[in-house]
Amino acid sequence: MKPFTIHKGKVAGIDRANIDTDQIIPKQFLKRIERTGFGKFLFYDWRYIDGEKPNPAFELNWPENEGATILVANENFGCGSSREHAPWALQDYGFQAIIAPSFADIFYNNCLKNGLLPIQLAKEDVEYLLRESKKADYELTISLEKQQVYDDHGFARAFAIDPYRKQLLLKGWDEIDLTFVYEPYIAEYERKHCPMP
């Protein structure tokens, strides 16, 4: 996993609640067996008209959002299917962090496993960021170490993250390698509860 330490980048906003993973990456792209290359299909049905022409009504196609690396959206972002293709697509498109008032549980987990940082902020802060994101070149800085999101004009908020996940993200560690350290405990559990046939 790519480590996440500090990131400064342009902010794009999509002011919708309940953005589901079917919108983030539609089903026709789930047949690929690779982990990369999903960015061009991100928000496919919203982003393109007839699959090729960019839809000017869609936020990510607005000129002020070009090159954005931080996405702000409304409640319950990432609900629905467990497809990890959703964070893969967001990351492949260029996003490094998502800010919303709430996230769906499975999506939130999937982001953390890929070094895409999901940040939960209060609803009024998200509303503020959604308004600010309409300005071209509005940028935020995210420090995972300090658990802070801030801009250059005085906005600064702390965010919560599980300390264990934070360590993994900061170091970019492979979780499976870490779990192998606990192999004796797994073997012991299996001996008691779940022996090999």
Partner: peptide, 10 residues
């Protein structure tokens, strides 16, 4: 419960 592909691998 449902899990993502990284968790499937884990």
């Amino acid at each position: 419960f449902g899990i993502g592909t990284s968790e499937v691998e884990h």
